[in-house]
């Protein structure tokens, strides 16, 4: 084991986890290699593409430029941890209906970011959705299906006039 290894305790997808990590191990590698949570993907490892986006204490973050050692005491949620989340379920349904994914590699990060956008910007129009989602890159879909999927969920959640 790495000479600088530290023991951290954190919550991963609702489960308490204690693990030894090398300080240089970024959170995505920790999740993927040590926790076998491979739904979190690495697309650039320099914080631009968004494929590795996960939740730390409920907020989206780049797991490739966040180090696991810095997450001691935090609560981390990956796409696997959103399996039973009602909003994530709505988004999954909408992504499928609108063909918001092709190869599926960017998709976990997209879902995490999209969930945040739906929660934070309930009144966003398509242009605002595009700006808010611009931290996630997709090379397959041309984004149309993803924007439509988020639109579908936003519209479905709007209170209906009496």
């Amino acid at each position: 084991m790495n000479q600088h290894a530290r023991t951290i305790s954190l919550t991963v997808n609702g489960h308490a986890v204690t693990a030894a990590v090398a300080p240089r191990t970024h959170l995505a590698d920790f999740l993927r290699e040590q926790r076998l949570l491979t739904g979190t993907h690495l697309g650039c490892e320099h914080g631009v593409c968004g494929a590795c986006t996960i939740l730390i204490d409920g907020e989206p973050a780049r797991s490739c430029i966040t180090y696991a050692v810095a997450c001691d005491g935090r609560s981390v949620t990956t796409v696997e941890g959103l399996d039973a989340d009602p909003l994530a379920a709505e988004l999954r349904d909408a992504f499928s209906a609108e063909h918001g994914l092709q190869c599926g590699f960017c998709t976990p990060g997209m879902l995490v970011a999209a969930r945040d956008v739906v929660q934070r910007l309930p009144d966003a129009d398509d242009a605002a959705v595009r700006v808010a989602m611009s931290g996630n890159l997709c090379r397959c879909t041309g984004y149309v299906g993803i924007v439509n999927a988020i639109r579908r969920v936003l519209d479905a959640r709007k209170p209906r006039p009496e």
Binding site: A61, R62, A113, S134, G135
Partner: peptide, 9 residues
Amino acid sequence: IAYRAVRNR
């Protein structure tokens, strides 16, 4: 600044 996920950290 950058993107929300970056702004969060």
